[in-house]
Every structure is written in C-alpha cells, then in structure tokens.
C-alpha cells in the first residue's frame, strides 16, 4: 500500500534509502557521470564512423545487407536503453510536488531586472537576507517569483579547497512573472552558495548574480 500510494520517489527510497542522499548532496556527481557517458558515446560513434569508412574500402563482392538484417534487434536495444534511462531517472524529478519528502524550511525568492532578493517565508518582499540559518539536513523549499520578466534561479556551489575548480550547478528553476515556481533542496554542507540568473532577462542578465550563506545551526 505504501508504495502504491506514494510517489515514484518513495518507491525508490524503499528500494534504496541512499537515493535521496545522492540527489541532495552530490549533484555534481550526476554531471560528471553524464559527461563521461557523453564522451564515451561520442568516442564509440567516431570509432563506428572509422569502421564505416574502412568497410567501404573493403566492399562486399555481392551485397548481402550484412548489417541491415539486425535493424529490428537494434531498435529493441535502443528502446530498452531509453526505457531504462527514463525509469531510473524518474525518482530524481526536479519537481517538489513529485516527492513526498516535506520541506522543513521555506524561502521566498524574488527576482527582478537585474537583482535577487531572498527572504524567509512567508514575507513576500520583506527585507532581503544574506545569511540563512538552517539545520544541516533540513529540506529547503524555494518559492520563486518575478516582479517583471522571466528569470532563472540557478544555484551554484564552489568549494575552493576541492578539486572542483569550476564550481558546479546544484539546481535551477524558472522564475516566471504571475506564477510561483518552486524547487526543493537539501543542503549538506555549510558555506557560500552562488545564485546566477539562468534565463536571458535583458542586457543586464549576466550581472544578475547573488549569493547566500548556509550556516549550520
């Protein structure tokens, strides 16, 4: 009953309690992982092309459609890959409504050309804060709203002492005027987090940068 009634995420937590931890704490892991997959797939493709070129230098005497025979097999393989890919990523849906984990902390985010303002809920438009105190492990829900045009609320992490020289993107959500969008995240490390606008919002878009501190309580 439990599994059926709750979201896909619960199903996965039931199967593997660490799923959520991976999602929350090590977002960068996913990107590196994807980069490796992409590089490997590209490399395989290039090898495939070289092989194709080679094959045309060794043409068959009589055409047997040697590869074409396997077309149906190939389709089955890619369909399976895509299904697996979809199913295994489903628990990581970036939508708070998809998850049964309830937030402990709510933060309001207001965007306008070309600045950010964060304030603790539910005070829309209240004085902006720089330092946000949360208990490590709390699940934070960001409510994002815009006063003018569409922006993108992107949060980056950078640890100067780690090998990660470029910082990494943790999560993002679009900020659309007249709508309230939201994103949920669990911070596992105290420190400075950087906000960058991730939707082109006019000539000052690239300057739309801010930061906040998560201090462990």
């Amino acid at each position: 009953m439990f599994i059926v009634q709750n979201s896909a995420r619960d199903l996965w937590v039931a199967l593997d309690p660490n799923v959520f931890a991976i999602l929350a704490g090590e977002a960068g892991y996913n990107l590196t992982y994807l980069e490796v997959i992409f590089a490997a797939a590209t490399a395989i493709t290039i090898v495939g092309f070289v092989a194709l070129y080679w094959s045309t230098k060794h043409p068959e005497e009589k055409d047997t459609h040697a590869l074409a025979k396997y077309e149906a097999h190939w389709v089955i393989v890619i369909v399976i890959i895509f299904i697996l890919f979809s199913v295994t990523t489903l628990p990581y849906l970036p939508y708070p409504y998809a998850h049964s984990v309830k937030p402990n902390v709510v933060i309001d985010v207001q965007a306008q050309q070309f600045s950010w303002c964060l304030s603790p809920a539910p005070a829309w438009g209240s004085p902006c804060v720089q330092n946000i105190n949360i208990t490590l492990g709390d699940v934070v829900l960001f409510y994002v709203r815009s006063l003018d045009v569409t922006h993108g609320f992107g949060v980056y992490q950078w640890n100067p002492n780690s090998s990660n020289a470029y910082g990494q993107i943790l999560f993002q959500v679009q900020v659309m005027p007249n709508y309230t969008n939201s994103v949920e995240y669990q911070f596992t490390t105290p420190g400075t987090y950087y906000i960058r606008c991730l939707e082109f919002c006019g000539y000052g878009h690239y300057t739309m940068i801010s930061s906040f501190n998560i201090t462990a309580v």
């Binding site: 980069e35 992409f38 950078w158 020289a165 470029y166 910082g167 606008c197 082109f200 690239y206 930061s211």
Partner: peptide, 22 residues
C-alpha cells in the same frame, strides 16, 4: 559540463570567483 550559463555577455565575473577558470 563546467556549468557555464548560456547567453551571457561576459560569463566571467568578479562576483563569482570560480568563473576565472572559464
């Protein structure tokens, strides 16, 4: 893959120390 946003006039910013590496 290093997280550079698209459509920025100047992706490197003083306010973001890690962007120098771009």
């Amino acid at each position: 893959y290093i997280g550079v946003p698209r459509r920025e006039y100047s992706p490197i910013s003083q306010a973001l120390p890690f962007t120098a590496g771009y």
